[in-house]
């Protein structure tokens, strides 16, 4: 099963609060998928405010706890704050129940918060990726209250580009190294085609040992890496 849902983007990639001039971060590519025994989360690092690049080094993969990652697309503050909140609640859960929160549990908790704020212009499109007693798990949630379990998701303005690369080469029996390379390649191609996506590429592997930050690479290096790949459209 595969699905891609971009967060609602009123206007272009910027979001304006009624009556103010405040633009919030938008424009992203995040992707996540799960294979046998592990899951991958990857994202770019560009943050835009309107047409300006506010930062090229944003961490869009937020640790909820040692075994769960949430990716952020939409308003940076909404994603950051509520991921933080779910993180602290998952810690409390662990202390109370002497076991880790499941990915399904964390994503439902997060989703329930978003439902409470439905219609109040929160802007969140997030993948909750993690590893729990039932294995690697992956959910997509957004500010409409939608919560879907799946194997492949991508999110944000560059998600369509990332998915087209990802879908072509994805197999459930990918090894970790292959999966990391595929994630990096997918995000790279999104940075190439979508101006809202760029900066560095971050990839995280989540398996039974926890989260492992495997790649943090500047896009510029990747350009030279992938430009040498045999291409159906050779450069002039």
């Amino acid at each position: 099963m595969s699905a891609s849902v971009a967060p609602p983007l009123p206007g272009r990639h910027s979001y304006k609060v009624e009556g103010t001039n405040i633009n919030f971060a938008h424009g992203t590519t995040c992707l996540a998928f799960r294979c046998n025994g592990f899951a991958i989360a990857a994202a770019d690092s560009r943050s835009t405010q309107g047409e300006t690049i506010a930062s090229q080094a944003v961490t869009k993969l937020i640790k909820i706890n040692d075994y769960i990652i949430s990716t952020m697309a939409g308003s940076a503050a909404d994603c950051q704050y509520w991921s933080r909140y779910v993180g602290s609640e998952s810690q409390l859960f662990e202390l109370r129940n002497k076991r880790r929160m499941t990915v399904a549990g964390a994503s439902k908790f997060y989703s329930n918060i978003l439902i409470q704020y439905k219609g109040r212009d929160l802007s969140v499109g997030s993948m909750i990726v993690g590893y729990d007693d039932f294995g690697a798990d992956l959910f997509y949630i957004d500010n409409d209250g939608q919560r879907v379990r799946g194997d492949i998701f991508a999110c944000g303005s560059g998600s369509t580009f990332a998915l087209s690369v990802l879908d072509q080469e994805f197999r459930p029996d990918l090894t970790e190294d292959e999966a990391v390379e595929l994630a990096r390649k997918s995000i790279y191609h999104a940075t190439h085609r979508d101006s809202g996506t760029g900066g560095q590429i971050n990839v995280i592997v989540i398996n039974e040992k926890g989260t492992n930050w495997v790649v943090k690479q500047d896009n510029f290096e990747l350009f030279h890496k992938y430009i040498n790949d045999p291409s159906p459209y050779p450069l002039q």
Binding site: I22, Q49, A54, S55, A57, S75, A76, D78, C79, Y81
Partner: peptide
């Protein structure tokens, strides 16, 4: 640390 108006922040 740098911030936006509604509390998103990061080290830079």
């Amino acid at each position: 640390y740098s911030y936006d108006a509604i509390g998103s922040y990061g080290k830079s």
